[in-house]
């Protein structure tokens, strides 16, 4: 029950991230998903690795916040308006939650696998259809988060070292997003990735 609730919170964070037009709101959703994700495990991670992941998440969120503050608060936005994307992600969670016992039996917490699949759907939307650096970077972070959630669902909770590695890879990906965002802003004054008419020649 608790694991299921944590899974719902993670998916809600991913939905906010994928559906938001405002980059600050998207940052909030991403942070929520990253903060709660390590808690979908039975047993819970040891204190030190858990703290490492939470601190890494907060540091990453701060870096994204700085990027948004110093560049532009609005993203290119979801391609289908936001509600459709949110519905897809939520549906993926419900379907995966329903089907996981049939497919995955006793391999790990069902909530983790279902949340992983739902977050992967959100990541796919962001990575494939992103129109700006912020959404692309958020998609990359969610893709790796989805993989680590699926890992918990498929093979049980990670060890302390793996938590350190997961926290590091997520932090480095956020750092890469912030760096890329800075470069994009320096190059053309916004974060968009689509070619401008004058770029096309």
């Amino acid at each position: 029950m608790v694991l299921g609730a944590a899974g719902v919170v993670v998916v809600a964070g991913a939905i906010v991230c994928v559906a938001a037009l405002d980059a600050r709101r998207a940052t909030l959703g991403l942070t929520l998903a990253l903060l709660v994700a390590p808690l979908i495990a039975d047993p819970l991670p040891p204190l030190v690795p858990l703290l490492f992941r939470e601190v890494a998440t907060l540091l990453g969120a701060y870096l994204l916040w700085i990027l948004v503050r110093d560049t532009q608060p609005l993203t290119a936005g979801p391609l289908l308006g936001g509600r459709a994307e949110a519905a897809f992600v939520a549906a993926a969670f419900v379907v995966a939650f329903g089907l996981a016992p049939v497919v995955g039996h006793d391999r790990g917490p069902i909530a983790a696998l279902a949340a992983g699949i739902a977050v992967a759907v959100a990541a796919l939307d962001l990575v494939v259809f992103s129109g700006d650096v912020f959404r692309l970077g958020a998609g990359a972070v969610l893709a790796l988060l989805a993989a680590t959630l699926a890992r918990v669902g498929l093979a049980g909770p990670p060890g302390p070292l793996e938590h350190l590695v997961i926290g590091s890879v997520l932090l480095v990906t956020v750092l890469a997003t912030a760096h890329l965002g800075r470069e994009a802003f320096a190059a053309r004054g916004d974060l968009t990735l689509r070619r401008a008419a004058h770029d096309r020649g």
């Binding site: 992967a120 990541a123 990575v127 692309l136 970077g137 998609g139 990359a140 972070v141 893709a143 790796l144 989805a146 993989a147 680590t148 699926a150 890992r151 890879v169 990906t173 890469a176 997003t177 890329l180």
Partner: peptide, 12 residues
């Protein structure tokens, strides 16, 4: 970035 993240997620 897209390629690295996708490859990493698939490998995991």
């Amino acid at each position: 970035l897209r390629a690295v993240a996708a490859a990493g997620a698939l490998a995991v």
